[in-house]
């Protein structure tokens, strides 16, 4: 009955500062190799452009925002950030397998149904997808990478993320707690 019983046979997570340190070194390595940081939402944007081009050829290319993601004779998926995100999926899978946490489930608090949770997951994703384009990045590209590069806008973004989260949290408390 209790959610924590899921975790009975799994390894504990790393201490936050250990995981944070490892992520920081990964980010530093990325800067050394490429001259830019890590990202995530850019890969979803490339995927959106690729999906649109498949469903309705020319529609992404003619779109004033997605057009820049389309290069002639090459899929928008053939890009650094898409390969990086494929790596994230593989790395996340390896982490879950070796940590004993690979398990099909719908993660939610004890007092919300599956349908409601999935609806809110979609709604939250929709708002966030829009937000990442407006902010020119997400928690990876703006907060982590821009934050490490000391960009003023990235730190303003990070503060705004926490403000938005705390403002909305009481309204969805029953989803999690």
């Amino acid at each position: 009955m209790r959610r924590s019983s899921n975790m009975r046979f799994s390894r504990p997570y790393w201490a936050p500062f250990v995981a944070g340190g490892a992520l920081g070194l990964t980010l530093l390595l990325t800067f050394y190799l490429t001259g830019h940081g890590l990202g995530a939402s850019g890969a979803y944007t490339a995927a959106t452009a690729a999906l649109l081009e498949t469903v309705a050829p020319g529609s992404a290319q003619n779109n004033s925002y997605l057009g820049s993601y389309i290069t002639l004779g090459r899929s928008p998926l053939y890009s650094w950030i898409v390969f990086e995100m494929l790596g994230v999926i593989v790395g996340g899978f390896l982490g879950a397998v070796t940590g004993g946490r690979l398990k099909g489930q719908i993660e939610r608090g004890p007092s919300i149904g599956r349908g409601s949770r999935l609806t809110l997951a979609f709604a939250g994703g929709l708002v966030m997808g829009f937000a990442t384009r407006l902010a020119r990045g997400c928690t990876s590209g703006q907060a982590l990478s821009g934050g490490a590069a000391m960009a003023l806008g990235s730190w303003a973004f990070m503060l705004a993320v926490f403000v938005g989260g705390f403002l909305a949290a009481p309204f969805v408390r029953s989803e999690w707690q």
């Binding site: 939250g124 994703g125 929709l126 708002v127 966030m128 997808g129 829009f130 937000a131 990442t132 384009r133 407006l134 902010a135 020119r136 997400c138 928690t139 703006q142 303003a156 973004f157 990070m158 503060l159 705004a160 993320v161 926490f162 403000v163 938005g164 989260g165 705390f166 403002l167 909305a168 949290a169 969805v172």
Partner: peptide
């Protein structure tokens, strides 16, 4: 964008 992203996050 940050405000909206925070809302979408939670």
């Amino acid at each position: 964008g940050g405000l909206l992203l925070g809302i979408g996050f939670v």
